[in-house]
């Protein structure tokens, strides 16, 4: 089994065995492949890049070429147990709408977001007066696909406004350590990324 990204490992742990999963922005299919073999999941994917799609389908995964912002609307409500969005929300033109659609077509949504409130990011902006470029977010401002950054606290506020319940939170720090105390100011300062399990309020 090839090693998968830290946030993907966490996501995989949240998924119940034998469930139906849609991975939005599934890339080369590493998570779907892991879920299919480790949890016997009925997995589907949407991926924007043709290269990613070809790799996925050539490995026997059910993946379509498509754009989350236009193609999620086709699916019926609660078509999946989980709709997963890994490290892509910040690249969406309308992240709120995407989150809304995810929570409509999935009974639950799992979202991982990079934390723009991470202390190294804050320090770079404060000390150098320039847009932060970090290991995980290695783009210059003029080339970055990440157009809608938020801090972990921003994300939590949005879920409250949208009437979503956060069932689980996991914060990953630079060393890959995980804590689950999402709403503290410390988490927002020390966490490099957050992984959230969401559902709509009943």
């Amino acid at each position: 089994m090839p090693d998968i990204r830290d946030d993907l490992k966490l996501i995989a742990e949240m998924v119940e065995p034998n469930s139906r999963v849609l991975d939005v922005g599934c890339g080369d299919g590493a998570l779907l492949d892991h879920l299919a073999h480790a949890k016997n999941v009925d997995g589907r994917g949407i991926e924007l890049s043709m290269d990613g799609v070809r790799q996925c389908v050539a490995h026997g995964l059910s993946v379509i070429q498509g754009d989350a912002e236009t193609d999620l609307k086709d699916y019926p409500a609660e078509a999946f147990d989980y709709v997963i969005l890994g490290q892509t929300l910040q690249a969406m033109r309308r992240p709120r709408d995407v989150l809304e659609m995810m929570c409509r077509i999935g009974r639950r949504a799992i979202v991982s977001v990079p934390n723009f409130g991470y202390w190294r990011v804050r320090m770079q902006l404060m000390l150098t007066g320039r847009m932060p470029v970090t290991e995980k977010l290695g783009y210059q401002w003029w080339e970055t696909p990440n157009i809608h950054f938020c801090t972990l606290r921003d994300f939590v506020v949005l879920t409250e406004e949208m009437g979503l319940t956060i069932e689980q939170t996991h914060i990953i720090d630079r060393a890959g350590r995980v804590t689950s105390r999402a709403h503290s100011g410390f988490a927002n300062l020390l966490g490099e990324q957050g992984v959230f399990l969401l559902r709509r309020n009943r």
Binding site: R44, M50, V53, R54, S62, V63, I64, Q65, G66
Partner: peptide, 21 residues
Amino acid sequence: SRAIVHALNAVAANVSFVEIE
């Protein structure tokens, strides 16, 4: 092909779709 994919998504069918360059 995409129109067919959208119809299959609308019923949550199991579908893969690739456009070859």
